[in-house]
Design a binder for these strands. Structure first.
Lengths: 242, 242
DNA sequence: TCAGTTAGAGTCAGGCTGACCCTTACTAAA
DNA sequence: TTTAGTAAGGGTCAGCCTGACTCTAACTGA
């Protein structure tokens, strides 16, 4: 983008440039099966290298914003969404991950609610892909998506992350849907219910979700710590469970 | 270090510079009590800002080395140690964490064995501190150390990290010592033994540690995956336990 | 009114946990 | 040589959590 030096040996003296990228996860019903599945938005490369391939949303860090702010801005600019959950994922900086000038990318991951995701911008250069079918991406972005998926699955087990996908009240079956979509396997409804109810982080309301086809399920409310507290800095981590 | 621009508004246009820092943990006996405790080396600042304060070992990223290589080089240069366990911790990049030019630091953490640590360099400008008594450090390094400690304690529970502190064979009591030093509390020897023995990652040898004052304990060998596999990229994570 | 489906409560056996006890095997002091 | 002390390492037991499974309640749509 700004090759200040003409030849290679000089260019190698140039400090690596810094970029922020964001892996944005949302749950949406699969258009074929109707099951909830994990999706993420990609932007099309409109310049070399990797022209026309899909890539993670990202861009440079502005002088006065924090890393987290830059990631939030990415999210906003590509999908018009405000982040509900945003956490640093990893810094990628191998010398050969980008062809021309060396780029170190600090990658964040975000979770958004399904109804938000439905509103998200989508045009010729922004498209949503099922997390397990992203195809070949630009740079090392396939690796990055893999790693983000792994982290998401791991974090689920800690307990509080799932609620970032949900609204202020929700049924236990909706929570189960989140877990099943992320983990990719079915869970026993009765046992799952028991586990959630024994958790401190959840509280029944007096309301029921009407309008379904069957017995109306009770609505619950999340009362635990802000899921974002899982991100740095947090010496407050609960270790009650395990 | 290299203020290419004279006034502030121009300087703000300059991209942030990138640095690699390393939090190096080692277990050493406390000189007072003799108990194993966590220690880490610091280097003295020999220039402004924070002249004469202690800081984490670190430095710039060289053009052809990976982030991980740069961290390994840090470790080598400050303590003359080769890394047995080295993993990325977090990227710190708030706009105000360093007074003059903005610096984004990608921080790694390392674990070294006690016998290695005993050999480590130590001079007027490199000193070891107990992890819970580092005093006031330069920049945001107190925060970073706190976070590294939290991560270490968390990782312990995953199972494989403890062996990075130990040699190729060890007694179960030595493993317990590692856990007690890191977690800062006593563990029941019998229950701890049972848990370790039921773990797949450990294998008894035919040897016993002679020369102690009491019944000679059996030596064990670690047979699990390389603890470094915990770091990126790793889709191979075992989720058998929990 | 009934068939179908989900919500939600409950049961039970097996595995893991912490607390605790006891024997074994060694050293050091008497 | 004996004895006291201590760590190694085997074991027991009650309580909790887990997965597999069953049963009833409550609703909708035909």
């Amino acid at each position: 983008m700004s090759p200040r030096y003409a030849n290679v040996s000089e260019r190698e003296q140039e400090p690596p440039s810094l970029a922020i990228s964001t892996v944005i996860f949302a749950l949406r019903p699969d258009p074929d099966t109707g099951n909830l599945t994990l999706w993420l938005p990609m932007v099309r490369r409109i310049r070399q290298p990797y022209l026309d391939l899909w890539a993670l949303p990202g861009g440079p860090l502005r002088p006065t914003e924090s890393l987290q702010d830059a990631a939030a801005r990415n999210l906003q600019e590509t999908t018009a969404l405000a982040p509900r959950y945003l956490e640093q994922l990893y810094a990628f900086g191998g010398p050969d991950r980008s062809p021309s000038p060396r780029v170190v990318s600090i990658v964040y991951w975000a979770l958004v609610q399904p109804d938000e995701a439905a509103l998200a911008r989508q045009d010729e250069n922004v498209a949503w892909f099922r997390a397990d079918r992203v195809g070949t991406l630009a740079f090392d972005h396939n690796q990055i998506v893999e790693y983000a998926l792994w982290r998401l699955r791991n974090k689920l087990e800690y307990g509080t992350v799932a609620y970032a996908f949900l609204g202020s009240t929700f049924t236990l079956a909706q929570v189960r849907d989140v877990y099943e979509a992320v983990l990719g396997r079915a869970l026993d409804p009765a046992n799952f219910r028991r586990q959630l109810q024994s958790s401190v982080h959840i509280e029944p309301t007096d309301e029921y979700l009407q309008g379904g086809r069957h017995r109306p399920p009770r609505l619950y409310r999340y009362t635990g710590p802000d899921p974002r507290e899982d991100s740095f800095p947090s010496q407050r981590r609960q270790t009650t469970e395990h």
